[in-house]
Each structure stands twice: as C-alpha cells, then as structure tokens.
Write a protein that binds this DNA or RNA. Structure first.
Lengths: 125, 125
DNA sequence: AAAATATATTCTGTTTTCTGAATATGATAT
DNA sequence: ATATCATATTCAGAAAACAGAATATATTTT
C-alpha cells in the first residue's frame, strides 16, 4: 500500500529527538558522542533513536575505531523536514541545519575535542 | 521547541488513512461522504481522522446544507507527501493526487451522484 | 414537529510508542 | 588479558495513539 509506506516514513521522523538528530547530522556525519552533546540527551536514548532511523533506512553507519559515525542516506529528507518546518510556521533562519563539520575521522564534539586537545577550531565551542 | 512542532505536524499525517484523505482531497474540496467512497472507510472513522487533521491545522471545513466540505489549508503539504513518497521509493505516477473535481456545492461521490441522478459525468464512476 | 441524512463526538479496549534502567558488545589501550 | 571507552540491546512500566461501537448534533425534508 502506497499510503502505508509514506506514513511509515513520516512516522519514523515524527518525533522531536529524531528530528533533532537529523538536523544535527545535516549533510555531514557524526559519532554518537557528538550527538549526545549536540542535542543534550543520554547516550542510550540517542542510540535507540538511531536504531529506529537505521531500521527505517534513513541513516547509515560506519565504524571507525571505537566510534560509529552516522550519516543521512538521502539528504533530501532534510528538505522534507525544512518543508515541514515552513508548514508549521517556522522561518528558514530558525531551522538552520547545523550539520557537524567534521573533517573525516575526528569528532568535534566537546568530549572528543577534549581528547584531541589543541585542535584548530576548538574555540567554536 | 522547533523540532517539537515539526514532529507534531509530521505525526499528524503519519498514518495511512490520513495520507489517503489528503491525497483524495488534493487541491479541491470534498464532503465526508465522498471520502467515504473514495478511500473505502466507515464514516465515523473518517470523521475521526478529519478531526485530527483539523486539530493539527491541516484542513479547514465549511458547511453547505447538510454536507461539510473539507479542504487542505496549505496545498504545499501535498508536496511534502509527494516528497515522502519519493523518499520511500514510490514513483510519481503511482502517487497521483486524485483531488475530487467538484464544481462547487455538489459532490460527485457515488452516494451524492445517485441523488443527483442524470448528472453529466456520471459515467466516470 | 417528526423523520431522515450527514457528520461529529464520546467511550473503551487494544496496540504502539516512549522513557529509563540495566546490561551487553566490540574496539582500543595498558 | 584486563580495563576502559563508545555504542548497542533488552526489558519493563507509563503514556499515547488507534480502532471500533455507540450515540449525539445539526440540517433539511416532509
């Protein structure tokens, strides 16, 4: 059924935490610890939501060392969210996609940054 | 909260019956009895879903005689659905928006058509 | 005013989803 | 091999959403 598959995709992102995660991922990729800091939720909770997004085929993950990096599979889902934002009266500026600007293999979240002490853009936190 | 309002909009349409209703409405307007025939669900059920859509601010209604005509408030929600369709691998042709072509005040659903016996486009059913 | 029609609302049991705690796994460092 | 770190999974109770039945309301017709 057509409407069934559409609604199940929508249901997969019809939850604040998952929208937050997708916006935080943006067009980049991020490890769970980054998301933990970015959206201010417990690790287990984020992991759960990531699992839901993974099962819905919305994100993919790759492992690098002990970190697992998540990424949005089809970025047009960000447009979908943006459009949903417009429809619910949110200005485009408010709805900035704050994709993590991570230069492959390193996470810029507070936790990771503390370990990689002295990295160039440390001040951006 | 931004993600809260986005997700609640999405949640409002994250249900097969509601997607069906919105696609059936399309850019036109339709009475409940039309929807009843169009998506093949009981009246009370459709009414319930319409209530949800109304509460979410997605559709508006106007009364004309004993019929109540529903209409999508902002048609760009159809684009949203279309995009969700694409994302879940549904071709555009499959996802035709079959908006009811109703020429103001009369309903072309089987029920209504039976009463307005002899109407021009009766054969289209 | 009574009957009929179109639609809305309320209630209730059932299923789904959320939330949080506890624990498990897999990788690296020591 | 042990410890530690990052992340995943499982489980259980609470909350929310659904689905269906029954019933109410508003409008028109008679």
């Amino acid at each position: 059924m057509i409407s069934e598959s559409i609604s199940s995709l929508l249901r997969a992102i019809s939850q604040p935490a998952r929208v937050d995660i997708l916006l935080a991922l943006g067009t980049g990729e991020a490890c769970v610890c980054h998301l933990e800091a970015a959206i201010g939720q417990r690790q287990a909770y984020i992991s759960q939501q990531l699992m839901a997004l993974r099962e819905a085929g919305i994100v993919t993950s790759r492992r690098d060392g002990r970190n697992i990096y998540y990424q949005i599979k089809d970025p047009s889902i960000l447009d979908l969210i943006q459009q949903a934002g417009k429809l619910s009266g949110i200005s485009e500026s408010e709805l900035a996609i704050s994709g993590p600007v991570i230069s492959h293999g390193e996470c810029s979240c507070p936790k990771c940054a503390a370990e990689t002490a002295g990295c160039p853009d440390e001040s951006s936190f």
